[in-house]
């Protein structure tokens, strides 16, 4: 059986090897986060969220919009703090690890978010610049990465001189240039046309494989989740794992398996609450 039906919550922890044998790359343990709004109301973004990510895992998260997925990434980077619960990376609490500042974890956004006054090279070098790498060295690294994403002719171009796909490539190069151990992708390919997105996804996968990267991605496209992830987590709103699916290798090419996973995700999304089913299903119907 290719697709595992696991208990909705906390599945991977229970199903894993004997406890404490392997320290997971990322451990999120009963995380909670609620925002108090200006009008005094409260928005619960993350509720009792628990899951582990093993080293070299490729985890795809699908879930309704407003489910707190981006907030979760902020917390993973140390930009926001949880109300309660814990996030550990390599067994260390995120507070000690100082998230983004450690350079071991970076994020790729949906839009390219390049600085318009910097050349492609300097944009790619930005993460290195922030970490204090000398100019010459970081430019060399940046140019190499631009070449790796197929932009060696555009090292001096300003973002306004690049196409959308080229900007997103620059964006990916920027994330890889800091040599992080973990990359968080927040709808990284959804602003692109499907042909460009397909090419970039497989390029990304190759790079992630070469660099022995661990990644966690948020996507609204089930096909993208199946193509990139080896595990798919279905989130409910507020953020919590309502279901987990293991994606067997080659599932994206195997019509039968892929269809089964799609159905399973749809079922769980519609079961995970009225809000959730409405928003995500409408997205899925467009596929």
């Amino acid at each position: 059986m290719a697709v595992n039906k696991l208990a909705p919550v906390n599945a991977s922890v229970k199903a894993g090897a004997p406890a404490a044998a392997v320290v997971p790359k990322i451990r999120i343990d009963r995380a909670r986060k609620t925002f108090v709004q200006k009008n005094g109301g409260a928005v619960e973004a993350i509720r009792e969220l628990t899951f582990d990510v093993a080293a070299n895992d490729y985890v795809a998260i699908v879930g309704p919009t407003g489910a707190g997925k981006s907030v979760l990434f902020d917390c993973l980077l140390g930009l926001k703090t949880l109300d309660s619960g814990r996030i550990e990376i390599d067994g260390q609490p995120i507070a000690n690890y100082i998230g983004a500042r450690s350079g071991r974890i970076t994020r790729i956004f949906q839009e390219d978010r390049l600085l318009p006054w910097l050349s492609a090279t300097d944009n790619v070098a930005l993460g290195l610049q922030i970490r204090g790498v000398p100019e010459k060295e970081r430019r060399d690294i940046a140019r190499r990465w631009l070449a790796d994403v197929g932009l060696h002719e555009f090292v001096d171009a300003l973002p306004s001189e690049l196409s959308g796909g080229m900007r997103q490539r620059t964006n990916i190069a920027r994330a890889f240039a800091t040599a992080p151990e973990i990359i968080l992708l927040d709808e990284a390919f959804s602003a692109l046309d499907e042909i460009t997105a397909m090419k970039l996804r497989s390029d990304f996968l190759t790079l992630a494989h070469h660099q022995k990267m661990t990644f966690v991605m948020v996507t609204h496209s089930i096909d993208e989740a199946i193509f990139l992830g080896n595990r798919i987590l279905v989130f409910g709103a507020p953020a919590r794992v309502v279901h987990e699916i293991a994606v067997p290798p080659g599932a994206a090419e195997d019509r039968v398996v892929a269809d089964r996973i799609r159905d399973e995700i749809r079922t769980w999304i519609s079961a995970s609450g009225r809000d959730a089913s409405r928003t995500v299903n409408s997205e899925l119907e467009n596929e």
Partner: peptide, 13 residues
């Protein structure tokens, strides 16, 4: 705001 988030995501002081 998105550029600010980006710069902070790279750990800018």
């Amino acid at each position: 705001r998105k550029l600010t988030d980006m710069v902070l995501s790279f750990g800018a002081s």
